[in-house]
Design a protein around this nucleic acid. Structure first.
Lengths: 339, 339
DNA sequence: CGCAAAACCCAAAACGTTTTAGCTTGTGCG
DNA sequence: CGCACAAGCTAAAACGTTTTGGGTTTTGCG
């Protein structure tokens, strides 16, 4: 019942352990004949190298961790889900295993983010949904360990990141709204991420540079959830009933906002335009279908794995990449209603 | 720059490696004095045992794999997401790491499901979203390795599972519809899972045993997605415009169905009732809010981890558990319209 | 044929733990 | 006082690989 080990293969083939190991690692120093012999035996016994022995000896685990934020039911969040899908599929293709981690209190206080790397449990970290308050990231950045901030960044800091272009997103969104005659806008977006802050600033800038006073842009902080969107929309609308459009920081908030308006008997898009961001799958199936800025989260996941690998291979010191975005027009946006 | 190892701790404390190891594993054979001394040194150096050395020596990894089905963007599926959340949080609490796996072609053909266990890469498998066609499961079941089918089962087979009560779900749903006067029902549910088949059979049975002929229940196969729901609703409605209710196999299908009806100008619930199953978060924020049978997926995740542990500890040979469900009435269901 | 260089393979150390049999002490009891 | 036994600790084997310096064989060439 004992597992077949490299030793069994070596014995059967009449070669040394090292030879088998070298074959398994595609080392060119082994002759084709020996290689074949070994591979056959491997096939025959369905031999699988023990990962732990391998990792122990080679000081590398060929795994990476996905670090998600500490939110309720976070894996049910499609924003993270789409990124994780990209990460998983790309990592697997490249022979890497994916571990799950959550950046909760314990993760931070026990410095698990360093320990995972120090113990070589994983070769690198892909950090999702971090916030401006995650100070531990700076400690991580000060080490030599490979990590990447996924769809977040800290302007001016030397940190690895892969992110959608939030500045371009702001421009596109503002243009779309301007072209449709919207002058009084409600901005529904949190303040816990630099991406959101960048978006807000550049959205404002786009409006003011079109000659529209920034007093026309009303802004509400809030969680990036349906609930947050619902409440934010209510807060904004009760104070500014002359709004003709809501621009939300993500699709979930937009969907929450639409829900508020529907409840109130306010029609989207006839009475008010609602625009989201990300283009998660739910956007298409929202009612009405949501106009949004597509961020291709799946692709961001893939690119992040790619970036991590360049760090593994020491092909780069710093990975900083901004990915293109585009407007997806569906049913929830239209011309501003007449006052 | 070398990591501190058990050796360093041993040297500093003037004890042997074994002693340190025993302390770390809470072995009672070590005196309190020595224990304290060692623990202090461990604290001081922020010593972390190397997981791989540990796993290699102890033949156990304290990790488990979540196996999700091979679907596009599967991690963005909130059904799986809620279960994974439960699994992750409960596993972490118990000191287990969580690895991600997808049951794709390669996973099956290369017998990865056995290899993971054989190489002790993980101690057990939690298999989500399996289908009646997943024959590899029977091979797995024939081994001694710990695994659990999550929210799925094979009636009559000796296999470990934890699942919501689909039979009770069928009864509850049927009752709700019967009480609201619905006589012509469209059943929107796949045939790829035994849970779905059980649901369908018992739903039919509940109706026929109320004296309603089974010709009043119209049924459409389909994928468990919004798209599947949309198309299924269309298919059913075009053939049977006298339907007054749609019962969907999950919330996503229900949401897809609602979308179809809204597009068609058919009002939910005034013209037609739509009921989902699972109660994922999107159900609450659907438009209108979806009436559904709550399966508490998060809890199913927790219970699955629990079950796996009883297998690890050999406290049970077989884990088979059915969890309670309940009706959540929201806005999408109501009395049948008058003919 | 002889020799240097190239090709191929191996031995052994290293990776950092767990685990168990057994070795010292110390203790209690007759 | 001597002995049995327990308590506390240790030595050493085991876990299954990778890696590298060096040894042996083969090849090519003069």
């Amino acid at each position: 019942m004992a597992r077949t080990t490299i030793k069994d293969i070596a014995r059967e083939c009449g070669v040394s352990l090292s030879t088998v190991s070298l074959v398994l690692n595609n080392n060119p120093r082994i002759s084709e004949a020996t290689r074949q012999k070994v591979l056959e035996s491997v096939q025959k016994h369905e031999y699988q190298p023990n990962t732990f022995a391998r990792s122990l000896a080679s000081q590398s685990s060929r795994s990476l961790s996905v670090v998600v934020p500490h939110l309720n039911n976070v894996f049910a969040d499609t924003y993270f889900g789409e990124i994780v899908s990209g990460i998983y599929e790309h990592a697997t293709k490249l022979g890497y295993k994916v571990l799950l981690e959550m950046a909760n209190q314990k993760f931070v206080s026990s410095k698990e983010y360093i320990n995972l790397l120090k113990t070589r449990r994983v070769d690198g970290l892909l950090i999702l949904g971090s916030s401006v308050h995650d100070d531990y990231l700076h400690e991580l950045a000060a080490t030599e360990y490979p990590y990447i901030l996924v769809n977040h960044y800290f302007p001016g800091r030397i940190m690895n990141f892969i992110s959608a272009d939030y500045i371009e997103s702001a421009r596109i969104a503002a243009n779309h709204l301007l072209q449709n005659g919207h002058r009084e806008i409600g901005l529904l977006i949190g303040t816990t991420t630099n991406t959101a802050l960048d978006f807000r600033d550049h959205f404002l800038r786009a409006y003011t540079s079109s000659g529209i006073p920034d007093t026309s842009i009303h802004w509400s902080d809030g969680w990036f959830t349906e609930q947050g969107g619902y409440e934010g929309a209510q807060w904004l609308y009760e104070r500014h009933p002359n709004l003709t459009a809501i621009m939300a920081g993500n699709d979930k908030m937009a969907i929450g906002a639409m829900r508020y308006f529907t409840r109130k008997g306010i029609k989207v898009p006839e009475d008010i335009t609602v625009i989201g961001m990300d283009d998660v799958q739910a956007a298409e199936f929202a009612n009405p279908a949501l106009t949004t800025i597509r961020h291709n989260l799946y692709d961001i996941g893939c690119k992040s794995v790619e970036g991590l690998l360049t760090l593994f291979r020491k092909e780069a010191q710093l990975v900083q990449q901004t990915l293109p975005v585009k407007l997806i027009e569906r049913e929830s946006s239209g011309p501003a209603r007449k006052a």
